[in-house]
Amino acid sequence: MELSPQAAKPVIDVRGLTKDYYLGEIVVPALRGIDLQIFPGEMVAIMGPSGSGKSTLMNMIGCLDSPTSGEYYLDSLLVSDLHDDDLAVVRNQKIGFVFQKYNLLPRIDAIENVALPLRYSKNTDNMRQRAEAALQAVGLGDRMRHKPNELSGGQQQRVAIARALVNEPAILLADEPTGNLDSQSGREIMELLLKLNQQQNTTIVLVTHDPTVAANAERIVQLFDGLVKSPEAIS
């Protein structure tokens, strides 16, 4: 019984979110009142020129930073008021991060990198098997024992995606996931993300300035000067 996205409860519900930075006495508003809903199974791209606030918004959605005002419900949980350690638990359980620079730990092999979020979660049963399954899902079943420097950029990003998925999060947050890759690898990573979105109904939020990457999304959110610019639906 497939519901249309709008009929379901939004997995990300942002209301009137603002964020101010302080440079000494000067207040720099990075976000000036963002309203945004993202529904389960959606693939949304957040775009905007540099300085538009898209990195700040990503940090808010990723629970890496707290807003100045406004509310943020993630998976029906009000997270905008939570404190550091509670936010850590939310990040661990609800969010999978994919970074532009992969951010794998160089000393440990692929499977241990993938298992890292499990180590910080309450449920530490069958860590190996779950990490193996996640690596197989991104097509790296034969590279589990390789260290990051023994893998190509595309493969490293696949490991990072497996790591993001291993705790079965509510959303996958990808910050310029193809930014460090050649076009061929970039295409493959986008295909993988699309496959995850279509076959496993993973909610994906893409932050990018690359229109060809953003074109893969069902919906593009344009940010400009800390505000959502255009009507949401594009595709």
Binding site: G62, L64, D84, D85, A88, V89, R91, N92, Q93, F97, F99, N103, L105, L116, P117, Y120, S121, R163, N167
Partner: peptide, 16 residues
């Protein structure tokens, strides 16, 4: 520093 940031993003608490 980056490693610490990553670990925190992946759910490490202060205590960890």
């Amino acid at each position: 520093t980056r490693e610490i940031g990553l670990r925190k993003a992946l759910g490490a608490r202060k205590f960890d």
